[in-house]
Structure formats: structure tokens, C-alpha cells
Amino acid sequence: LQAFIKTLTGKTFTVEMEPSDTIENLKAKIQDKEGIPPDQQRLIFAGKQLEDGRTLSDYNIQKESTLHLVL
């Protein structure tokens, strides 16, 4: 599935991932794409901060969901 990552500066980019991917995997993909170390990334979806060990499906993240990236 493709999801949108929106930063506080208003920049939006897309990442490809599977519902079974962990938040940790997602942070690694963001690092590959944007060069931001995972330990500096905080991802917010539906008002909740996402925990590394959980999966996208745990948070009911669907295709074309928008996640907010806070540094």
C-alpha cells in the first residue's frame, strides 16, 4: 500500500509498504528516502504516536492514509 508522510514544514512524500510492516520498518524507509535517522522520527496517525514494535494494521493504516512526521 502507498501512504503519505507529511512533515511539519508541509512537505509530503509517499512510501510503499505492507500492512504487516512494523513502524520500525516504516521509519527505515523514511530514512532511505529522506535521510532522517529513525531515532529522530515521531510518527503520528489519528492523533496517536506510533510505537516501533506495532504494525500498520495494528493502527488500521490503509492505503493513501496520511501520517504526520514530527522531528
Score class of each variant (00 low, 15 high):
45 F>P: 00
70 V>I: 13
43 L>G: 00
67 L>K: 00
58 D>Q: 07
24 E>D: 08
29 K>I: 09
44 I>C: 12
27 K>D: 00
56 L>H: 01
34 E>V: 14
44 I>Q: 07
1 L>V: 13
3 A>F: 15
11 K>S: 06
1 L>Y: 11
69 L>I: 11
25 N>E: 12
31 Q>F: 15
37 P>F: 05
6 K>T: 14
68 H>V: 12
34 E>G: 06
2 Q>W: 13
45 F>A: 03
47 G>A: 03
5 I>T: 01
19 P>E: 10
20 S>C: 08
66 T>F: 08
25 N>M: 15
38 P>F: 14
62 Q>D: 13
7 T>V: 07
67 L>F: 07
55 T>E: 04
2 Q>N: 10
44 I>D: 05
6 K>D: 04
49 Q>S: 08
63 K>G: 15
17 M>V: 15
32 D>Q: 13
69 L>G: 00
57 S>V: 07
45 F>W: 10
67 L>S: 01
2 Q>L: 15
41 Q>A: 04
53 G>Y: 10
15 V>S: 00
28 A>D: 06
34 E>D: 04
53 G>K: 12
26 L>H: 00
45 F>D: 00
41 Q>P: 01
33 K>Y: 09
63 K>Y: 10
18 E>G: 10
10 G>Q: 03
56 L>I: 12
8 L>C: 14
31 Q>T: 08
15 V>F: 09
65 S>A: 12
55 T>N: 05
18 E>M: 14
54 R>E: 06
47 G>W: 04
12 T>W: 09
12 T>M: 10
36 I>P: 04
42 R>V: 15
20 S>L: 09
15 V>P: 00
54 R>G: 06
3 A>Y: 15
57 S>D: 09
6 K>H: 14
32 D>N: 10
10 G>A: 02
31 Q>N: 09
37 P>G: 03
13 F>D: 00
51 E>D: 09
12 T>R: 07
20 S>G: 11
45 F>E: 01
11 K>A: 07
48 K>C: 07
23 I>F: 02
27 K>Q: 02
26 L>P: 00
54 R>M: 12
56 L>A: 03
9 T>W: 15
36 I>Q: 02
38 P>I: 15
42 R>F: 12
56 L>Q: 00
37 P>H: 11
42 R>M: 14
58 D>H: 12
50 L>K: 00
14 T>N: 05
33 K>E: 07
20 S>R: 07
8 L>P: 15
67 L>D: 01
32 D>H: 10
54 R>V: 06
11 K>G: 06
71 L>R: 06
66 T>G: 05
69 L>C: 01
11 K>H: 13
62 Q>G: 14
54 R>F: 13
69 L>V: 05
57 S>F: 09
48 K>L: 13
66 T>D: 04
34 E>M: 15
7 T>Y: 14
63 K>D: 15
43 L>E: 00
8 L>G: 11
69 L>S: 00
60 N>M: 08
60 N>F: 07
51 E>N: 06
56 L>C: 03
13 F>Q: 00
14 T>F: 11
6 K>Y: 10
19 P>G: 09
43 L>T: 00
55 T>Q: 08
70 V>C: 07
41 Q>F: 14
35 G>I: 01
44 I>K: 04
16 E>S: 10
51 E>Y: 05
16 E>N: 11
53 G>F: 11
13 F>M: 04
27 K>A: 00
70 V>S: 08
7 T>S: 06
35 G>V: 01
71 L>H: 07
43 L>A: 00
45 F>S: 03
67 L>H: 01
9 T>L: 08
63 K>P: 15
4 F>S: 08
39 D>N: 12
56 L>G: 02
18 E>L: 14
39 D>F: 10
58 D>W: 13
63 K>H: 15
71 L>I: 13
17 M>I: 14
21 D>F: 05
45 F>N: 02
36 I>S: 05
36 I>W: 15
46 A>Y: 09
16 E>V: 11
44 I>L: 11
33 K>W: 07
41 Q>H: 02
35 G>L: 03
60 N>W: 05
64 E>I: 07
15 V>I: 14
17 M>E: 00
13 F>N: 00
20 S>H: 13
20 S>Q: 09
70 V>R: 08
54 R>A: 09
1 L>W: 12
30 I>T: 00
21 D>E: 09
36 I>N: 03
11 K>D: 08
66 T>Q: 08
10 G>N: 05
30 I>E: 01
7 T>G: 05
61 I>P: 05
48 K>I: 14
24 E>P: 02
54 R>N: 10
38 P>H: 12
6 K>V: 15
19 P>H: 09
60 N>S: 08
47 G>H: 05
62 Q>A: 11
34 E>Q: 10
55 T>Y: 08
57 S>A: 14
40 Q>I: 10
68 H>Q: 09
4 F>W: 10
6 K>I: 15
68 H>S: 07
50 L>Q: 01
57 S>R: 10
19 P>R: 09
46 A>F: 09
19 P>T: 11
57 S>K: 12
65 S>K: 07
8 L>V: 13
12 T>G: 07
31 Q>H: 14
48 K>R: 12
59 Y>D: 02
57 S>L: 11
4 F>H: 13
19 P>V: 11
53 G>V: 06
48 K>V: 14
7 T>D: 07
71 L>S: 08
44 I>V: 09
2 Q>E: 09
54 R>L: 11
47 G>F: 04
11 K>E: 08
14 T>A: 09
55 T>I: 07
26 L>T: 01
65 S>Q: 10
29 K>G: 02
45 F>H: 08
30 I>S: 00
1 L>K: 05
48 K>H: 11
26 L>C: 01
45 F>Y: 13
35 G>N: 07
31 Q>A: 14
20 S>E: 10
36 I>F: 13
35 G>Y: 02
69 L>N: 00
50 L>D: 01
58 D>M: 05
71 L>F: 09
16 E>L: 12
51 E>M: 06
67 L>Y: 03
12 T>A: 07
56 L>F: 08
53 G>M: 08
46 A>G: 12
2 Q>P: 07
61 I>Y: 06
71 L>N: 07
56 L>Y: 04
16 E>I: 12
20 S>F: 11
27 K>L: 02
24 E>L: 15
21 D>N: 05
54 R>W: 11
10 G>F: 04
18 E>H: 14
69 L>F: 05
41 Q>V: 08
12 T>H: 08
38 P>V: 15
47 G>D: 06
19 P>C: 06
66 T>A: 05
38 P>N: 07
5 I>F: 03
30 I>N: 00
24 E>Q: 11
20 S>P: 03
30 I>M: 01
52 D>M: 04
37 P>W: 05
70 V>T: 09
5 I>H: 02
54 R>Q: 09
50 L>A: 02
3 A>R: 02
7 T>C: 08
62 Q>P: 11
5 I>M: 02
32 D>M: 13
56 L>T: 03
8 L>S: 15
22 T>G: 03
34 E>W: 14
51 E>C: 06
7 T>N: 05
30 I>Q: 00
43 L>I: 12
57 S>W: 08
61 I>F: 08
48 K>S: 09
10 G>R: 03
1 L>T: 06
25 N>W: 09
49 Q>L: 14
24 E>F: 14
20 S>V: 04
39 D>H: 12
70 V>D: 06
25 N>H: 12
7 T>L: 14
22 T>A: 03
11 K>L: 10
43 L>P: 00
1 L>R: 05
10 G>T: 03
67 L>M: 08
17 M>S: 04
56 L>P: 02
29 K>Q: 08
70 V>F: 14
35 G>A: 04
41 Q>I: 12
43 L>C: 01
63 K>N: 15
60 N>Y: 06
61 I>H: 05
